[in-house]
Design a protein around this nucleic acid. Structure first.
Lengths: 109, 109
DNA sequence: TACCGGTAGATAGTAACACTGAATAGTGGT
DNA sequence: ACCACTATTCAGTGTTACTATCTACCGGTA
């Protein structure tokens, strides 16, 4: 992972995970694998798990422990109402930033 | 400044400032004022100055001390060749992230 | 003179977040 | 008994933006 990407993910990775969870429930290992498929090649596993614990403590997700056939039990996370509100805020913030950067990229001061 | 925006600016603010400097030279006070006009209403002045010192130490900008009629001398920053390369890298990283988020926002897993 | 607002920059300490590296645990196959 | 894969956790580190404060220069005003 480039240092640039590491810094840029701050605040964004949380939104990405919430967005994933807005579509379907998922557990940590699964989310990490999905992120890697999407080109976030070197996302650290520990990072995702820490993030999940964080959003759980903030009350954005509900958790269910589900047995796995292939290993230890999974913690399946699903977005709740508060999480959806927070995700909405995330998209607003992202959109603002994205528009400003789009303008800058096109050469407009 | 929302906490969300604060986190999201990490890694991005540096790119924004480099992008500004790619268009024209500027000094800290001026950059802070410009950012506020653009809607980054509560960017802390200290943040911009610290960032400028950082990119100077990394060799992305050249500095000239220019006397001001209205106050203490200004430190005018201009992007050099290394800074332009770094800015290119920033735009690549940003584009990658932006595309992924665009997909997520449109409901695609 | 003394003071204040606007201009301009610097800095010590704090909080938040992603990363590193390692550990723990369950299951199935050899 | 060992290994690979699945699955989660955690202590310690580095980077970044913020808070709050400080220094400093100039012009205008009481």
């Amino acid at each position: 992972m480039s240092k640039q990407m590491t810094e840029m993910l701050k605040g964004v990775l949380e939104g990405i995970v919430l967005a994933i969870l807005s579509g379907r429930s998922a557990y940590g290992y699964e989310i990490t694998a999905w992120l890697r498929e999407q080109g976030f090649s070197d996302i650290a596993e520990g990072t995702v798990y820490a993030l999940l614990i964080r959003i759980e403590q903030r009350g954005f997700v509900d958790v269910a422990k589900v047995p796995s056939e292939k290993g230890p039990p999974r913690k399946v996370y699903s977005l709740n109402a508060q999480g959806r509100r927070h995700l909405d805020e995330f998209w607003k913030t992202w959109s603002f930033l994205s528009e400003r950067l789009e303008q800058l990229h096109k050469g407009g001061t």
